[in-house]
Write a protein that binds this DNA or RNA. Structure first.
Length: 697
RNA sequence: GGCCCCGUAGCUCAACGGAUAGAGCGUCCCCCUCCUAAGGGGAAGGUUGCAGGUUCAAAUCCUGCCGGGGUCGCCA
C-alpha cells in the first residue's frame, strides 16, 4: 500500500504533511505524499536522478577517503540510459569526466566507484567498460517498484519540480483577428499548448498568451470588408474590391452589424463608422478564433491586444527606456545588399540599436509617416510581460518570422537587463497530403483549409498528435488519409491501439471476476514480474520522469510524442511475445499472477492516460465525435486569406485547396476504434493531462 | 549579398556532447487456428552534405564551403 511507501534515500515513510486525515487521503489520491525530510515523493521518482544521487554520494565518500582530490566539479556527472541494453541499465560517465581534473586514469576511478556503489542494495552490478563507462545493473526489485510508483502516483507520475515554480509566459498563435484560423496556425497552436502543458507538468507556473494583432492597417481592411457585408445584409450589392477580405465568414458579421445598427451606417463616410465597425468585427473574429482554438483543445489564459497598447503611453515608455540606454537613435539605414528594393531611398528613421545585441542591422521602430512600426508595440508588449514578473518568456513564431528573432531577443535582453531569457521557437510549415497528392499552394484559390476543417475531418486528438511528431523546426507532412488509417503506418493509431489492448485486458479481467482497481493492482505481488521482457517494459516506463525533464528543459514537446510511440512499441512487442510464450500473457490461470501482470498493463495505461500532456482536459466531447458527413468541405471561402499571424506561416503562401472527396478507407477509421473502445480522445492523439490547468497545478 | 532553419540508410525520420549512429516504410528470407480485430520474426542496407577545429569523447559545439527552404525599411 502507498501508506507503507518509504523514501529510498532516508527510508522514512512518505506522508501527506496535511493537517487532517481527509486532506491526507486526498493528497494520496493526487500523488502528493512525500518524504517529509528530503521532499522526494510520487512526483519525483526519476530513478535516474536517484541513482545519480547515489553516484554523487559515492564520489563524495571517495573524496573523503582521499581516493579523489577535493573540490571536484561533479556537475558533468551523468547517469543515463545506455543506448545498448547489453550495457546494463544505466551508464555513468563520471570516470571519464573526472579523469583529467582528478589526475587519475578513468578506469581506476571507475573501479573505485564501482566498489563504492556495490554496497548499495539497489545496485546489482557495476562493470567498467569502454573508455571508462561504469555500467550499472539495478536490482529487479527496483524496477518492480516502478509499478507501485506509477499506480500510487497516478496523475502525478513523472511530474517534476525542475521548474521551481518559476513563472513562464508562452505566447503562441497570435494570429491576426481578420478571419478564421487556418491550417497554417494549427501547428503553432498545438506546439504552444503542448509545451505549456509540459512546462506546467515539470513545475513551472505557465501563462498561455495570445497577442492580438489588432493595431495595424489589416483591421481597417477587415472593417471595410465587413462594411460591405453590412451593406449586403441591407440588400445592397457588396463591393468586395481588390485588397479586401472576400471570405464569406464575414457575412454573419454584416448581418450582426445590421442587427445592431439597422441601416444607420449606410451612406455614411468611412470616418463615421470605421472605428466602430472595426472594433465590432474584430471582436467577432476573436470570438471565432477562440472557438477555433477550443475545438483544438486550446484555451488561452490571457489575450493581449496590440491596439490597447496605443494611447496608454506604454509604447513611448518602452522606447524611452531604451533611449535612456542609448539604444534608440535617429539614423539612416543602408539598403540591403544584393537585393535592393527598386524604390529604395535613404531616409532618416528612429532606430533601435539591436546590433548591440548581435543583430545584423539596427531596426526601425517608426515608419516614415511617424507612426510606430509593428516592432515598437511588440517591444512594449514584451516589456509588459517582463514587468508582469515572468522569469522566462517563450514565443512561438512561424518560420517566416525568423528574421524577427534577434531584434526581439535584443529588446527583451535590454529591457530586462538580461534577467529574463526569451526563447523563440520557430514553427516550420505543414505540408498537407490527400489522396496521395500534395495540396498545391495557391494564393488565388477559391478556398483555403481552416483549422475547423482539419479538426472536423480527423479529430482534434489526431491533429494534435501528428503536429508533435516532428521537431518544431522541421517541415512536417500531414496526410489526411494516413492519419485515419488503422495501420501501423499511422502513429496515432499505433499508440491508441496499445491503449485499447490494455483496456481489453482490464475488461476481460473484470469479466473473469478479478479485482483490477488501483488498490488491488497496487497490492499485487510485483515480484512476479521477473521476466526480461517485463522488466524491459518497466525500464521504459521508468524513463518517463527523466524524459519530462529533458523535454521541458529544452522546450521540446515533440519528445513526448516520440516517447509514447516507443512505449507503445514496447507494449506491442510484449503482447506479441505473449502469443508464443504463455507466461508473458497478462491473463493467467492463477488469479494472483494475473493481477500482477495486469498491474503492469494497468501501469502502462496510467502512463498513457494520465501522464501525458499533449492535450489538456477540457471536457470537450464534441471534439471527439466523428466528423459530420459534411466535413471535408470548406465552408469558409475566400479569394485571399487573411494576413498571416505571427504564429503562422501564412506569409509563405500557406493556403491550400480542400478537396471534398474523401473515400473512407475500407479498413475503418480511428473513429471506429473510438466507438469500439470508448478510448479515443482519452489516449492516443488526445493524451491530455488530466487535472492540469493553465498556469500549472 | 546579409541573417535564420534544415541536410543522418533507397524513402520518412530518431538520437540530454557518450560506447558498435537507431526506428518505421520499402527490399530479401522465414513463420502465422491463440488476450482486439494493426499480422509476427530475421537479414541486408551508413565516410551523419564536404573540409578543418575544440574535446577523454562530435551527427550534436566552433569556423569555412556545398545544397534546399525562409527572410531582408514605410506588412504584421
Amino acid at each position: 500500500m502507498a501508506a507503507q511507501r518509504r523514501c529510498r534515500r532516508t527510508t522514512q515513510r512518505w506522508t501527506s504533511g496535511a493537517p487532517d486525515g481527509a486532506r491526507a487521503a486526498l493528497d494520496l489520491l493526487a500523488g502528493l505524499w512525500q518524504c517529509q525530510t528530503c521532499k522526494t515523493g510520487f512526483d519525483q521518482m526519476n530513478l535516474f536522478a536517484e541513482i545519480r544521487n547515489a553516484v554523487v554520494d559515492a564520489l563524495g565518500r571517495m573524496i573523503a577517503e582521499g581516493a579523489l582530490p577535493s573540490g571536484l566539479d561533479l556537475s558533468a556527472v551523468a547517469v543515463e540510459p545506455p543506448r545498448d541494453a547489453a550495457h546494463g541499465d544505466m551508464a555513468v560517465n563520471a570516470a571519464m569526466v573526472l579523469a583529467k581534473p582528478a589526475g587519475k586514469p578513468p578506469r581506476e576511478i571507475a573501479e573505485g566507484l564501482a566498489r563504492e556503489l556495490m554496497a548499495d542494495p539497489r545496485i546489482a552490478g557495476a562493470d567498467v567498460a569502454g573508455p571508462g563507462f561504469l555500467n550499472l545493473r539495478l536490482s529487479a526489485a527496483l524496477w518492480q517498484g516502478v509499478v507501485r510508483d506509477v499506480l500510487a502516483a497516478g496523475k502525478g507520475y513523472g511530474r517534476s519540480d525542475i521548474g521551481g515554480g518559476n513563472k513562464v509566459n508562452v505566447e503562441f498563435v497570435s494570429a491576426n483577428p481578420t478571419g478564421p484560423m487556418h491550417v497554417g496556425h494549427v501547428r503553432g497552436a498545438v506546439v504552444g499548448d503542448a509545451l505549456s502543458n509540459l512546462l506546467a507538468f515539470a513545475g513551472w507556473r505557465v501563462t498561455r498568451e495570445y497577442y492580438i494583432n489588432d493595431g495595424g492597417a489589416q483591421v481597417d481592411v477587415l472593417a471595410r470588408s465587413a462594411y460591405e457585408r453590412y451593406r449586403e445584409a441591407n440588400g445592397l450589392e457588396p463591393e468586395i474590391r481588390e485588397g479586401l477580405y472576400p471570405g464569406d465568414y464575414l457575412i454573419p458579421v454584416g448581418e450582426a452589424l445590421k442587427a445592431k445598427y439597422g441601416d444607420s451606417l449606410l451612406d455614411k463616410g468611412e470616418q463615421y463608422w470605421l472605428a466602430e465597425v472595426r472594433d465590432f468585427a474584430t471582436e467577432m473574429m476573436m470570438q471565432m478564433i477562440r472557438e477555433d482554438l477550443a475545438s483544438l483543445g486550446v484555451a488561452m489564459d490571457v489575450y493581449s491586444s496590440e491596439k490597447a497598447l496605443y494611447g496608454t503611453g506604454e509604447i513611448e515608455a518602452a522606447i524611452e527606456t531604451l533611449r535612456g540606454m542609448d539604444l534608440i537613435y535617429d539614423g539612416v539605414l543602408e539598403p540591403p545588399k544584393g537585393k535592393e528594393p527598386e524604390d529604395w531611398e535613404p531616409r532618416e528613421q528612429t532606430l533601435f540599436r539591436s546590433t548591440a545585441y548581435g543583430d545584423d542591422v539596427d531596426r526601425p521602430v517608426k515608419k516614415s509617416d511617424g507612426s510606430w512600426t509593428y516592432f515598437a508595440p511588440d517591444i512594449a508588449y514584451h516589456y509588459n510581460k517582463v514587468r508582469r514578473g515572468f522569469d522566462q518568456l517563450i514565443d512561438i513564431f512561424g518560420a517566416d518570422h525568423g528574421g524577427y528573432v534577434k531584434r526581439m531577443k535584443a529588446a527583451v535582453a535590454a529591457l530586462s537587463q538580461g534577467r529574463v531569457p526569451l526563447d523563440i521557437k520557430l514553427i516550420q510549415l505543414v505540408k498537407l497530403w490527400k489522396g496521395g497528392q500534395p495540396f498545391k499552394m495557391s494564393k488565388r484559390a477559391g478556398t483555403f483549409v481552416t483549422l475547423r476543417d482539419v479538426v472536423e475531418e480527423v479529430g482534434a486528438d489526431v491533429t494534435r498528435f501528428i503536429m508533435l511528431t516532428r521537431k518544431n523546426d522541421v517541415a512536417l507532412d500531414f496526410d489526411f488519409d494516413k492519419v485515419q488509417e488503422q495501420s501501423k503506418d499511422n502513429p496515432v493509431f499505433y499508440v491508441q491501439y496499445a491503449n485499447a489492448r490494455v483496456n481489453s485486458v482490464l475488461r476481460k479481467a473484470r469479466e473473469a471476476g478479478l479485482a483490477v482497481d488501483d488498490a488491488s493492482l497496487l497490492a499485487a505481488d510485483h515480484t512476479q514480474l521477473s521476466h526480461d521482457a517485463e522488466i524491459a517494459m518497466l525500464k521504459k516506463i521508468a524513463e518517463w520522469p527523466r524524459l519530462v525533464e529533458i523535454a521541458a528543459r529544452n522546450n521540446e514537446p515533440h519528445r513526448v510524442a516520440f516517447f509514447l510511440y516507443d512505449l507503445a512499441s514496447d507494449f506491442h512487442a510484449l503482447w506479441n511475445r505473449g502469443n508464443d510464450e504463455g507466461q508473458l500473457r497478462f491473463l493467467q490461470d492463477d488469479p494472483a499472477t494475473s493481477v500482477a501482470k495486469i498491474a503492469l498493463a494497468g501501469n502502462k495505461r496510467c502512463h498513457l492516460r494520465r501522464s501525458c500532456y499533449l492535450g489538456r482536459d477540457a471536457g470537450r466531447r464534441n471534439a471527439l465525435t466523428k466528423p459530420s458527413a459534411s466535413a471535408g468541405q470548406s465552408r469558409r471561402n475566400g479569394r485571399d486569406q487573411p494576413g498571416p499571424g505571427r504564429g503562422s506561416d501564412g506569409g509563405s503562401g500557406f493556403c491550400r485547396i480542400w478537396r471534398a472527396h474523401s473515400p473512407r478507407a475500407g479498413k475503418g477509421t480511428a473513429h471506429d476504434a473510438d466507438r469500439r473502445c470508448g478510448l479515443f480522445g482519452r489516449v492516443g492523439g488526445g493524451l491530455r493531462v488530466l487535472g492540469l490547468q493553465a498556469g500549472g497545478a
